[in-house]
């Protein structure tokens, strides 16, 4: 084969349709090798670039797994922290509630005492003379029922 490879033959070569005659010609023809290289080189680079992009699926997945494992690692710690917080806050709240209750109870006791004293003083007050027999009767009644 003395003539150079045609444009179609260059493409056929790249498609993998190679015959012995072309092969022999290419061995001694740098021009045709260059013609093939002009198309083959960008395609080779393109193939490598796509494969490089293909590797990102693994990188992305690995990053995702790492994030997930971090999240998993954080869970027990977060749970522990939440439990500790609950145990720390509950007694405080209970104490406050109890302290609150204590104040209220004391206030109630004081007011009860005041009321009782008031009632006793009213009861011990002398009644008008006309009502004295009734008052004595009431005292006797009360004493009998008790």
């Amino acid at each position: 084969m003395k003539e150079h490879l045609s444009g179609d033959q260059v493409l056929e070569w790249m498609m993998g349709l190679r015959d012995a005659e072309c092969e022999a010609h290419l061995r001694g023809c740098p021009e045709c090798v260059e013609a093939i290289g002009k198309v083959a080189a960008p395609l080779r680079l393109f193939g490598a670039a796509v494969m490089e992009l293909g590797s990102e699926v693994r990188t992305r997945k690995r990053a995702e797994n790492r994030r997930r494992s971090w999240r998993l690692a954080y869970w027990p710690a977060a749970l522990l922290a939440a439990t500790l917080l609950i145990f720390a806050v509950l007694p405080l709240q209970r104490g406050q509630r109890q302290a609150g209750h204590g104040v209220t109870d004391a206030a109630v006791a004081v007011s009860d005492e005041v009321l009782l004293q008031h009632v006793e003083s009213e009861l011990s007050e002398s009644v008008p003379g006309s009502m004295e027999p009734l008052a004595r009767l009431m005292t006797n009644e009360t004493g009998r029922t008790r």
Binding site: V50, L53, G54, S55, E56, V57
Partner: peptide, 11 residues
């Protein structure tokens, strides 16, 4: 084959 399949689909 993950890389090859992904590369092909992505392209």
């Amino acid at each position: 084959y993950q890389r090859a399949i992904y590369g092909f689909v992505l392209a």
